[in-house]
Write a protein that binds this DNA or RNA. Sequence first.
DNA 1: AGACCAATAT
DNA 2: CATATTGGTC
Length: 310
Amino acid sequence: MGEEAAGDDEFDRLSASDGREIVEDHGRVMYWEVGLPSGDDLTPLSQMLVPPHLASAFSVKPEPPRTDMDVQRASQYTISNLRRTAPSPASTAALRNFSPFSPDESLGFEANDLVENGDSCGHISRSGQISPSAALEEAESSAPVAEDSGDEPSSSRNPKRARLVWTPQLHKRFIDVVAHLGIKNAVPKTIMQLMNVDGLTRENVASHLQKYRLYLRRMNGIQDDSPSLPDHLLTAMQPAKKSLHEQHVPYTPLQYPMPAMIPVPTFGMAPPHGHGVRIGMVPTMEHQGDGRYAFEQHYNGALGERMKDW
DNA sequence: AGACCAATAT
DNA sequence: CATATTGGTC
C-alpha cells in the first residue's frame, strides 16, 4: 500500500463550489493556473471532442458528454494521485489532509445529474471502472448524491436508514484509517472520525470493524498462501500496518478533511452481478454528539465491483 | 451516559 | 453473505 507516502504539507483547501474558483489557504494552488486559458477559451463540456463524422470514419465511439460532476470527480482523482506521488519532505509521518472540494456547496449539483442520467450506467460507473484493481487501490472519489426521488418517508426525520454499502472506496478509506491508528486505537468512534465520511455512523463502522477483525483473525491463523488469494484482495485487506509511531496517535494524522465519500445506502440488494444503478434514498440525518455533519444520501457508486471475498 | 464488542437478527 | 441491532461490560 502507499503507506505514508501520501504526505503533503499544509493542506490546500480547494473550494470549488461550481468548479472554477480554487480558493485555497496559502495561495499554493493558484499559480498553477497562471497562463492557462480561461474558461471561455476552453472547449465546452458539452462539445464533442471528435466530430461525429470523424468518429464514424475511424470507428471511434463517441465519448459520453461530460458534466461538471464528471470533471470534478476526475479532478479529485488527479489530486489524489498527485498527493500520493509527490514525495513529501519531512512531514511524512503524519498522513496529510487532502481536500479536493468543499463538501458543503457540492450538494446541489449531483442530485440533478444523477436523476437525469437515470440509467446511463456509463458515467457513473466510471469511478469504479477505472479498473477494478485501481478502484480498490487508489481512486478516491465522491459519490454522487441523489435526493430521494419521489420518496415518501419524509426525508426529514426518517428513523430508518438505508443499509450502508461498503464500496471499495469506502473500504479503502476504512483500511487506511485503521492502518494508521494502531490496533489499539482503531475503535469505531475514532475510525469514524478519521474517515470523515458524511453520514457514516459509529454503528456502521463498528459493524464493519467486527467483520474486519474476523477477517484478520482468520487471516493470520491461516498463513497459508497457497494458490488462492487474489493479490488485490490481499492488498485491500492487509492487516493494518503498524507504523512505527502509531503508539500515540491522538487524532491528527490521517485525515480526510472533506466528506467526499458518501455512504451508499440501498434498499434492495445488488443484483447478482453488480451493475444496476441503485438509488437509495436516505432519509435523514441526525447526529452524534461530536462533530459530524448531517447527511445526504445517495446512489450507489455503481461500481459493479463489490468487495469480493475478503 | 457512552463506547466497545461479541452475539444475534435481518 | 453483508449489515444492522442488541445486550452485557467496562
